[in-house]
Design a protein around this nucleic acid. Structure first.
Lengths: 157, 157
DNA sequence: AAGTCACGCAACAATTAAAGTTTCATGTCT
DNA sequence: AGACATGAAACTTTAATTGTTGCGTGACTT
């Protein structure tokens, strides 16, 4: 299995929603991240449950941001997409019988847990607005340079 | 896909090899970790290339430890099994065109890289002997308690 | 010299979770 | 009524580890 892209994709979408559009449909979002509307709804449902976005059915409906990007941390988004396992390595899931294996598993788990805690702390300290400003810095640099600024808002705008 | 178990499994095997047996066949190792000999050879080949174990063909052959456990770090074992990706999450592999996506991917990658570097430092500072002593502590505690010490060397001894 | 044991290697099948797809139902605006 | 958009269920596809089978090679035993 390749890596879990949900968090990365949702961050991408949130910034577009804040900077470029007021209300978007699942189909438009699907265009941004090269997938289809059902996959989008699946992921966005998690964001809605966390109060990050709202959805409206029917004609003229779609998705809207519910909070400013300054109030959304990477941790919020990570949890919104269902807290997928952070690590690809580790001991087997079900507890071992062998004492050697138990000792190995415990130490490995402990080390990974500590790393996970540190990473989640990082996620707590970064808000999506930080990433949006990273984008604007890149955009400004591109305009200053000799190249014309194409691809600013990918497929969406 | 479940988690990558190779590192955990090889740590388990190395401790058994040091504490319980002098020379083991792939089949015996397969019995320890509940798999078959081919899977074992695949993983052990990496350890051999790193100089951690040696192998001998033919009658009476098998695998032997080449170094003391005090000289083998978790990092060594991690690299020996091929440096599998540590994280299950992250941005997509191929570089994005959209500037927003680029900014998101760069920041996420940077954060994960930092976490990876910290974790690998931890792996550098733990030697397999440390885990072996964890095991012996557990074993001693079990003998002191009222329970008989079964399952000391799992299926192997 | 024959036989057995054990690694080396190549090719293929099984498993698992994310991602992708299809279909239908529900709600809302014009 | 009709068009649009989300909600939800069921199924297929994909990618990587793991599991399996078969054959070749080397080494010890009798």
């Amino acid at each position: 299995m390749p890596r879990d892209l949900r968090m990365s994709r949702m961050l991408h979408v949130l910034i577009h929603m804040d900077r470029h559009v007021d209300r978007v449909t699942s189909d438009q979002i699907a265009g941004m991240i090269s997938t289809n509307a059902v996959v989008v709804r699946r992921m966005m449902a998690g964001l809605r449950e966390k109060g990050i976005v709202t959805s409206e059915k029917g004609h003229g409906g779609g998705w809207q941001l519910a909070r400013a990007l300054t109030g959304i941390t990477l941790r919020d988004v990570y949890e919104a997409v269902g807290c997928p396992p952070l690590f690809n390595i580790g001991p087997q899931a079900d507890p071992a019988e062998c004492l050697v294996e138990k000792a190995v598993d415990a130490r490995l788990e402990e080390t990974l847990q500590a790393a996970e805690a540190r990473l989640l702390e990082q996620f707590d300290q970064i808000v999506v607005e930080d990433l949006a400003q990273d984008f604007e810095r890149r955009f400004a640099e591109l305009r200053e340079g000799a190249v014309e600024p194409q691809g600013m808002a990918c497929h969406a705008s």
